[in-house]
């Protein structure tokens, strides 16, 4: 209840609109009985007495601000990093593709039409590592063994030398044909029944070439005399057996060194070495794939 001892608070709250309706009615009733207080209240609440802010501004306002690293800038940073990584990956892929395509011989595969041992693609039957037997290859070796026995004394073969450039090769693996043939011959007993699938390359060769050497005659002497150097390098310079006009280089006929020589002479070194590599692959008796030599 408002009275002469506490009216100050009520009057001030009344002037500032801080009272509820009941309190307003009470204050107005009190002011009705105290008109001098109403005049005083009006005087002290005059707008001219209201405190006004000085017309100044905060000095050094910018010194209070903090540097902002906007989210856009962060996104830009990550975008830049992502773009750099993408460029590096693209560059690496291009280099990788270029590395695989640098052997021009691959692009000229159509030049060398293999003699028709069979019309079906041979690689599956020759790549033993793919889980299939190699009947054609084994039959070929079986046939070669028989022909070697018949003509062992009459054959003279030039050596096949695969030389490299004067520059040191990265990896060189040397082996002899004997090393290659022996494990193949060991499998002969398992492939005796595959002769029906075998068509000797010699049967498909024409006889008009003096340099022609039947495949069966070429195996054994080479296995005795030739050091075959298979080089894992991009630069094979010369192959120096006797050249031949034959174009029957293909997988399975690689042992015909004349064909390798021809391929090399014509500049298709990669083709020749590829054939050598395929030939050198065989499966050991325990079934584990073993690769004797590689070349590019």
């Amino acid at each position: 209840m408002i009275n002469n001892d506490n009216y100050e608070g009520y009057l001030m709250r009344y002037a500032d609109g801080e009272l509820n309706d009941k309190e307003v009615a009470m204050v107005e009733a009190f002011l009705a009985t105290h008109p001098e207080l109403r005049e005083e209240l009006e005087a002290i609440t005059a707008p001219s007495l209201k405190i006004t802010p000085p017309l100044v501004t905060m000095p050094d306002k910018k010194a209070l601000m903090q540097p902002v690293v906007s989210p856009i800038s962060r996104k830009a940073i990550w975008r830049t990093i992502a773009a750099a990584v993408a460029l590096l990956l693209a560059f690496g892929i291009v280099l990788k593709m270029g590395h695989h395509q640098e052997n021009p011989i691959i692009a000229k595969n159509d030049v060398f039409k293999p003699i028709s041992v069979t019309d079906s693609p041979l690689p599956d039957s020759l790549y033993i590592g793919r889980g299939k037997p190699a009947p054609l290859l084994l039959a070929k070796q079986h046939k070669a063994k028989e022909m070697v026995a018949e003509n062992n004394s009459s054959l003279q073969q030039s050596s096949l030398e695969v030389n490299q450039d004067d520059e040191a090769p990265l990896n060189v693996m040397e082996t002899t044909i004997e090393d290659i043939i022996e494990p193949l011959l060991a499998n002969n007993s398992t492939s005796d029944n595959d002769d029906s699938q075998y068509v000797s390359p010699a049967q498909n060769m024409t006889n008009d070439s003096q340099n022609h050497t039947p495949v069966a005659q070429s195996i054994s002497p080479v296995s005795r005399t030739t050091n075959l150097t298979v080089i894992e390098t991009d630069q094979l310079v010369t192959l120096t057996p006797k050249p031949t006009d034959r174009h029957d280089l293909r997988v399975g006929n690689v042992i015909e060194n004349n064909n390798i020589a021809l391929a090399a002479e014509k500049g298709f070194i990669g083709k020749a070495i590829d054939a050598v590599t395929r030939f050198l692959m065989h499966r050991s008796e325990d079934g584990n794939e073993k690769c004797l030599a590689f070349s590019d």
Binding site: E8, G9, Y10
Partner: peptide
């Protein structure tokens, strides 16, 4: 009490 102080403050300012 806020009202009381304000009333006295305004009265004194006047």
């Amino acid at each position: 009490q806020v009202g009381v102080y304000l009333f006295r403050a305004r009265k004194r300012m006047r």
